[in-house]
């Protein structure tokens, strides 16, 4: 019954998303709290996008390049 945060992870298509994909195929365990959003480049994640995620109920936001 403990608090399970919702975390949005913006991942770059070319690096971190591929890493996440690899983590998945390698069956590495990571917390189920993250929701991955694939973006073409982490540089395109405008601050407004981050605030939007918080406004829509995210408890934390990560940007992975």
């Amino acid at each position: 019954m403990s608090f399970e945060p919702k975390i949005i992870a913006f991942c770059c298509n070319w690096c971190s998303y591929a890493a996440a994909d690899l983590a998945g195929t390698a069956r590495m365990q990571y917390p189920h709290n993250v929701r991955i959003v694939r973006v073409m480049c982490s540089g395109m994640v405008h601050p407004e996008l981050v605030m939007d995620a918080f406004q829509q109920g995210a408890d934390g936001v990560m940007v992975l390049g």
């Binding site: 971190s16 996440a20 983590a23 990560m62």
Partner: peptide
């Protein structure tokens, strides 16, 4: 509540660590 991480396509362990 916000963080920035650099993870390359060949670093799944780094990804897992960052997320955890």
């Amino acid at each position: 509540r916000f963080s920035l991480h650099w993870v390359s396509s060949a670093e799944p362990d780094k990804f897992v660590a960052a997320v955890t």
